[in-house]
Amino acid sequence: GPNNVSMGELDRIAQNIIKSHLETCQYTTEELQQLAWQTHSYEEVKMYQSKPRDVLWQQCAIQITHAIQYVVEFAKRISGFMELCQNDQILLLKSGCLEVVLVRMCRAFNPLNNTVLFEGKYGGMQMFKALGCDDLVSAVFDFAKSLCSLQLTEEEIALFSAAVLISTDRPWLMEPRKVQKLQEKIYFALQHIMQKNHMDEDALAKLISRIPTLSALCTLHTEELQAFQQLHPETVNVLFPPLYKELFN
């Protein structure tokens, strides 16, 4: 294998990450398939649209925080993650957890009608109108659609999520070499699986080219949160989940 990593080791890494992913997804593939055509009714969408801005922001913050807790659990189960120093574990999660949530979101996105699973049913972009950040919402939907177009398998989503999380691009890592070694193995495993699954030789390159968009979305989210907080400081301080504030504030 590449860089003296044996195929056996790559396979072990892949299996561990796939298992960790499947054990920590909020919904199984079967559950998502069953829900795929259960969409919020016109009245329900209207109800979301007529909510006060801060109420919908709070609801979204709660959903995101919930999803992030599963991502933390995912990270903990990846062999090698808990062997990193605590500083780096926290740093990688702080900077990468929302990116992983966005990658995972493509599982709960229906590209045929551009809807996403939110509070039990699927709904389109217009459902989030009251947030007052159409740019962010439409960028997130575009991203989900573009990731769906790559038709990734559950295994590829698992390995890609791990590759996004365990990244040497994060500033202030204390043991970047250790992170790099782990990341390289994950990429080799991802490459191996993608070569097996896709006729398209550029599939991996296409997938990797989505990473800058992920990071741009997270920056946009932080900016929108700051703008929102200026107008509704009490909502953020009192009503937002503590973990969300800790990560993004």
């Binding site: 903990k76 808990m82 605590q86 926290i90 800790e246």
Partner: peptide, 16 residues
């Protein structure tokens, strides 16, 4: 560490 109390706690909790 103080700044990331909850994240720290989640990492410490044994995997459920």
């Amino acid at each position: 560490k103080e700044k990331h109390k909850i994240l720290h706690q989640l990492l410490q909790n044994s995997t459920s």
